[in-house]
Computed example of a mutant assay.
Amino acid sequence: MSLTNHQILLASRPQGEPTTDNFRLVETPVPELEAGQVLVRHHYLSLDPYMRGRMNDGKSYAQPQPLDAVMIGGTVGEVVASRNGNFNVGDHVVGMGGWQEYAVVDATQRGVLQKVDTRHVPLSAYLGAVGMPGVTGWYGLVKIIDPKEGETVVVSAASGAVGSVVGQLAKARGCRVVGLAGGPDKCAYVTDELGFDACIDYRQFPDLKSLSGALKVACPKGIDGYFENVGGVILDAVMLRANAFSRVAMCGMIAGYNGEPMPMANPALILVNRMKIEGFIVSEHMNVWPEALKELGAGVATGQIKFRESVAQGIASAPEAFLGLLKGKNFGKQLVKLV
């Protein structure tokens, strides 16, 4: 049986803000399997902010996305053919299959494909709360911020796939949790459904003075921990309210992903407040993934960890959905549904 695969390639590198012209949709035949390989039909693609950095050709923590190659990205799906004894047809798996409908995977390589249990956790959640975004949030909170009961933790992009997990984990540890999100609907979700103590609509406070004032009201005892996804004026406002010995987990700086300058307004506060600011890449900490996934999986299975998804339909929708993600148009984890 011959199958046709549809793939999204990176056609060109963006000059500033990316557009759909940077991508190309192609059609290719699915090759026959060789020994040790499995064929995965993807059910969902993951769209994540880190992909924007990989579209550039500059020096970063990860190799650039090659031109004229399938866009890199996380996937979940089902094994539909196998020449590997460790994987059977029907197995649900998570991997880095990229922006395509099918992937031929050399499953003899350890870790490239993981079986997942969908009896209590939905398949899509393995790309969000029980996947890389969830572990990212867990690591930044538990290993860097290391919150104590009664402390105040602030989370930017609080309604997103990472930030939503951070806040719920911090609440479970007895913290006061304050989110930042764009728009009243996202802020209502963060407080009413996710259980944050407060959420600031940063669009209502566009300058440093007003945003710092809003944080002062929401964080009357100052800020002990901050999970950073955005950068720019939000980081400056948090630093003005930071307590002595506060900790900042630097996860993302989406405000500068298109090359915008991001000078820090008051770097002296790092010294004055004896702050710990640590950047991290979650793939460099694979040793803690089992511990993180155990807590995250149990939380999702029991309903203690809630999550939300924005789902685009079909492979052709991926570029537009990705550009929307970079502008905050998504609500929760951004996925592309293929099946």
Rank of each mutant, 00 (worst) to 15 (best):
P319G: 09
M55Q: 07
L3I: 06
G256D: 07
E193L: 10
Y50Q: 10
A198H: 11
K216P: 06
D21A: 14
G332S: 07
P49H: 04
I254L: 04
S12K: 13
V288L: 05
G16W: 00
I281K: 02
V135H: 02
A107T: 01
V30A: 06
D57A: 14
V282Q: 05
G225S: 04
R83T: 07
V162T: 15
R41G: 13
K171E: 05
A301E: 05
P147F: 13
P49R: 04
D201L: 11
C187K: 10
T118P: 05
T302C: 14
P31G: 12
E149C: 13
Q168L: 05
K294H: 14
W289P: 02
I315V: 08
R241H: 01
D207Y: 01
F87L: 04
V217I: 08
V30M: 00
Q313A: 09
L269M: 10
R13P: 12
K333Y: 09
L240S: 13
V93R: 04
A188K: 15
Y257S: 09
G225R: 03
G95Q: 01
Q304K: 14
Q304C: 10
F227L: 05
D201N: 14
G77C: 09
A181G: 10
G297H: 06
V233D: 03
I277T: 08
G259Y: 05
G279V: 10
E78R: 14
H120C: 04
M51S: 10
V116M: 08
G256I: 09
D197A: 03
R173D: 11
R176D: 15
A318P: 06
Y44A: 03
V300T: 03
K59A: 15
A318H: 08
E101V: 08
V121K: 03
N88Q: 15
L10N: 07
L3N: 12
L169V: 06
G163P: 13
L47N: 02
D236L: 00
T4R: 01
E34T: 11
V238D: 03
M275S: 04
D68Q: 12
T19S: 14
V116P: 09
F245H: 15
V288D: 11
V153R: 00
R119I: 07
G95C: 11
S82F: 00
M96I: 03
V339F: 11
F280S: 04
K115S: 04
G134L: 00
A214P: 06
H92S: 14
V336A: 03
Q37N: 05
L194W: 03
G160E: 13
G73K: 03
S310K: 11
Y202H: 06
K221M: 09
G73S: 07
V311K: 12
T4K: 03
S12N: 14
G97W: 02
G90V: 12
T4N: 08
V154S: 13
A170Q: 12
A318V: 09
A318C: 04
F23M: 02
V104S: 12
S212F: 01
A158I: 08
K294I: 07
